[in-house]
Design a protein around this nucleic acid. Structure first.
Length: 263
DNA sequence: TGTTGAAGCTCATCAACTTC
DNA sequence: GAAGTTGATGAGCTTCAACA
């Protein structure tokens, strides 16, 4: 199942409910929409207008211009299965003051890279590193990590990069709470030494490292940050798969319900 | 504490459909 | 073809939640 080519919410005046109406009508992807002569609820002029929009979207998809598809930000997660091999999972630590970055951690699915203040937390290094990716995955990054990085560096992200904030995807599935809480709910574990370490502890670890210059404090901080980054990968996979099943499932349920006469 | 997106709500508007 | 009805959408606003 191609999540993007099954999506219709990039069309003008089509919301998630409109999209579900199309699915219930048997229009499961762009090909089905374009092949249909008539679609209930859409006039001929409107259908022709949407045909043109879908053909343009198909061209953008082929050109890998995903950011121009017109998907709302809240639905960028639908691009994740397509781009997961080009994703970076990102998490930052600060000194405790808003905007004061100490560590920027990145996991690309194989390797963990840490940019540490006083060592390699350099704007050009970060910009060059991030330019390799098409998707950045965070937990609550739209409210915290990304604005903080913008304040600290200015813009270091490529213009065409897609941002997926896993927190909001999980929230739509009913998973509330912070990252560690949701990890526990889903059975995602951390090594024993890191269990119980929180964001507040990360601030203390950095302060102790600055005071003593003892590497073990920094090692624990980086191990904590790495776990935050690494665990985003299974969280993102779970969230995207489950939300897609949920929204497709709810459309199918309404079809079954209609057939059984419960509407 | 600062920041931001999502969600929920109301209200006005628009488009499709039905009826005459 | 015109008028009325219905349902969906967008805009604007507020509230909530999460991060360090």
């Amino acid at each position: 199942m191609h999540l993007v080519r099954s999506s219709f919410i990039m069309l003008d005046r089509v919301s998630t409910s409109g999209e579900q109406r199309l699915w219930r009508a048997g229009i499961h992807d762009w090909d089905a929409f374009l092949a249909a002569q008539r679609i209930p609820g859409f006039g001929l002029a409107r259908k022709a207008f949407y045909d043109r929009q879908l053909l343009r979207a198909e061209a953008l998809l082929q050109a890998r211009a995903y950011e121009r598809l017109g998907l709302p930000k809240s639905e960028h997660w639908r691009l994740y299965p397509l781009l997961k091999d080009e994703a970076v999972f990102l998490d930052i630590e600060t000194s405790g003051s808003y905007g004061d970055v100490t560590v920027l951690g990145c996991w690309d699915g194989e390797t963990y890279v840490a940019f540490v203040r006083g060592h390699n937390l350099d704007k050009e290094l970060v910009r060059e590193y991030l330019s390799r990716f098409r998707v950045v995955v965070t937990f609550n990054g739209s409210s915290f990590d990304l604005p903080v990085l913008r304040r600290y560096f200015g813009n270091v992200f490529p213009e065409d990069i897609i941002h997926v904030d896993v927190r909001h995807v999980l929230a739509r599935l009913g998973y509330a709470g912070g990252l560690k809480s949701i990890e526990r709910q889903l059975g995602i574990t951390r090594e024993a030494a890191l269990q119980g370490v929180s964001g507040d502890d990360a601030v203390l670890l950095w302060q102790q490292y600055c005071l003593t210059q003892e590497g073990e404090f920094l090692d624990v901080l980086l191990a904590y940050n790495e776990a935050d980054c690494r665990n985003l990968e299974p969280l993102a996979a779970f969230a995207v798969r489950t939300l897609w099943e949920a929204i497709r499932g709810s459309a199918d349920e309404q079809i079954i319900c209609k057939k059984e006469g419960c509407l």
